[in-house]
Design a protein around this nucleic acid. Structure first.
Length: 234
DNA sequence: GCCAACGTTGGC
DNA sequence: GCCAACGTTGGC
C-alpha cells in the first residue's frame, strides 16, 4: 500500500472514474525472480488452482475470494491516523467505503480482478491481535484511487499523473463479523499442519506472501477459514 | 537488465 | 521497538 501501510477505506464512495489504463508492470503475470528478490505473483499459483476457483478468462486464473488487510488501531503517519478497522467500515454510510491507499502493484492488480458480489475477509493487521475479523463484499469494481493525487493524503504519489493514474481502489461493503475472531496464530498453526498433511491452508497467501495487503484465496481456502468460526478456538 | 542500497510491512 | 523479509529505486 501506501507509502506505508495497508489500505484504509475512507468515508465515502467517490465518483467513479474509468478504470485506469493499467500496466506498468503487471505484477500479476508470472514474474521471475530478479536478482535475489523474488516478486511473487498471483498467477504463479495458477497451475495449482482448482478449476472451481477459476472463473472465466480462458487463459488466466481468476480468483473470486479475497483477504484485505487494514489496521484497526491508531497509528500516525505524517500526523494522520491511518486506523481503519472493520468497525470503521461498518460505521460508514451504507456500511460501505472505498479501499484506497493501496500502493503495491500486485495488491492493486488483485483489486482490479475483483468483481461485484465477491466476498473478502477483513483482516486486522499491525495490531495487538492480528487476524480475520469479518466479511465484506465488493460493491464496486476497480476505479481510480483519488488519494494518489492529493498532496495532503498519506498515500499521495507524486509520480502518478491524472492522465495516467497508477493506483486503483474498489468499494467494499460490510457484511458481518465472523462468529468469532480468527487469530493469525491459529491460521498459522493450521497452515503449518497443512503443509505437512496437504490440508487446505498449505499454500495460503497470508503465509506464503505475507506482505501482500490484498490477496486471493481459493474457494477451498476461503470455505475452510470460514468454517473455523463454527469451531472452538485452538 | 542486474543488483546493491534503501524503504516498507507487519509479526513478535 | 526490533528486525526479517521483501518490494522498489536507480546507478551502471
Amino acid at each position: 500500500m501506501p507509502p506505508r501501510k495497508r489500505a484504509r477505506g475512507p468515508k465515502n464512495t467517490t465518483k467513479a472514474v474509468q478504470p485506469a489504463s493499467d500496466n506498468e508492470d503487471n505484477s500479476d503475470t508470472p514474474i521471475q525472480r530478479k536478482g535475489k528478490r523474488k516478486i511473487a505473483t498471483a498467477s504463479k499459483s495458477k497451475g495449482k488452482v482448482a478449476s472451481s476457483d477459476v472463473k472465466d478468462s480462458p487463459g488466466k486464473a481468476s480468483y473470486c475470494h479475497w483477504l484485505m488487510k487494514s489496521e484497526p488501531e491508531s497509528r500516525f503517519e505524517n500526523g494522520i491516523d491511518v486506523k481503519f478497522g472493520i468497525k470503521d467500515l461498518k460505521a460508514l454510510p451504507d456500511q460501505t467505503g472505498c479501499w484506497d491507499g493501496v500502493r503495491n502493484y500486485q495488491a492493486r492488480n488483485f483489486m482490479r480482478d475483483m468483481k461485484v458480489g465477491q466476498q473478502a475477509f477483513f483482516y486486522h493487521s499491525n495490531c495487538k491481535e492480528p487476524g480475520i475479523a469479518g466479511l465484506m463484499t465488493i460493491v464496486k469494481e476497480a476505479y481510480v484511487d483519488h488519494t494518489q493525487f492529493d498532496k495532503k493524503d498519506v498515500h499521495y504519489d507524486a509520480s502518478s499523473k491524472p492522465d495516467n493514474p497508477k493506483w486503483s481502489m474498489v468499494d467494499v461493503q460490510y457484511v458481518r463479523m465472523l462468529k468469532r475472531f480468527v487469530p493469525l496464530a491459529e491460521l498459522k498453526k493450521l497452515h503449518q499442519e497443512h503443509r505437512a498433511t496437504g490440508g487446505p491452508l498449505k499454500d495460503m497467501a497470508l503465509f506464503t506472501r505475507a506482505r501482500l495487503s490484498v490477496q486471493p484465496l481459493t474457494a477451498e481456502e476461503f470455505n475452510f477459514v470460514l468454517s473455523l468460526e463454527e469451531k472452538d478456538p485452538l
